[in-house]
Amino acid sequence: MSREVDRLIERVRSTLREAPEAVPDPRLVAQLLSAVWASPKPSMLRRWLDAWRVPAFSAVTATVVAGLALFAGFVTRGVIGERPAPEPLAASGPQTGEFPVQFAAATTIDEAAPVLTQFVLNDAKAERVSLVGDFNDWSGAATPLTRLDSGVWTVSVPLPAGRQVYAFLIDGTFLTADPRAPKSGDADYGREGSVVMVFPR
């Protein structure tokens, strides 16, 4: 079997040796090169896409890749991730001898940084008290006050610097202004609240 194959190979070799040497026709070469040069060049995008090899994804791989890309998107846009820890607080005491009392963050230099502000309401009969204002979209559930043993209600919330209008919502229905603070007018709804000037730090 092997001897027959060797003989066949030898015959092919001898035939090829006897054949005239193939010399390319210069006119054909010129025509071929002209045709190649005349053909439109692929765009940069096309060449880049041709060069970029995409592996054939399995369904599982594709899902994992899409998941990672989504996660990266959420992280880079700040939807997922650690929130900055609150800065240490240094009590500064009352600003004007009136409530609410403001506390400054020890290292705050940003004028727009929220300032912790304490609110107090003396209402021993109330069962629930919450603080409402623009800063919490007037949500009665967002900022509940804590009742102390003395019957005084209090809460400290970070507020943006500036003029803040607020009110207390008692037992979920009764809205009242802070008796210790200046009143704010209310041309829109006719229910005045209170005003606190929050100092920037």
Partner: peptide, 23 residues
């Protein structure tokens, strides 16, 4: 945000729908 807060202020203050819309 200020517009949403204004609308919700009206809800908390039990204002009528028309008044909230105007505000």
């Amino acid at each position: 945000q200020p517009l949403i807060a204004k609308a919700m202020e009206g809800v908390t203050k039990q204002a009528t729908g028309e008044r909230i819309q105007v505000a």
